[in-house]
């Protein structure tokens, strides 16, 4: 009985775990850096849909001209490799990222 409960908890935590946390935060663990990305996307695209689309297209096929980051950053870290995630999973990660870091959440 005890084993069954533990198994259910583990499975449910896997099912409901944050996609962004699972797929992105292994590498992008610095809070400030994540905020910076969102800040740059927001400054350029303004609305939620365009921000999410821009991130999605960049992650699927990263190009220098599509990047919102300054050249210094790109020189240092180079272009990101294309994401191997399924589109659906990638979109969910981006949604999670937006929900966590969108700038309006800072305002009260």
């Amino acid at each position: 009985m005890r084993k069954t409960i533990i198994l259910v908890l583990i499975l449910s935590s896997c099912i409901y775990s944050d996609s962004f946390e699972k797929n992105c935060q292994k590498c992008h663990f610095q809070e400030r850096q994540l905020q910076m990305f969102m800040s740059r996307y927001t400054l350029k695209y303004s609305n939620e849909d365009d921000i999410k689309k821009a991130i999605f297209y960049y992650l699927k096929a990263p190009k220098i001209e599509d990047s919102v980051m300054p050249s210094g950053f790109l020189n240092r870290w180079g272009l990101k490799e294309s994401s191997t995630l399924e589109d659906r999973e990638l979109k969910k990660s981006i949604d999670d990222y937006y929900n966590r870091y969108n700038l309006i959440k800072l305002l009260n």
Binding site: R32, M36, T42, L103, L106, L107, N108
Partner: peptide, 12 residues
């Protein structure tokens, strides 16, 4: 200023 500082929370 809020955008550049990204201070959380920021007063509108």
């Amino acid at each position: 200023s809020i955008h550049n500082s990204l201070k959380n929370p920021s007063l509108y």
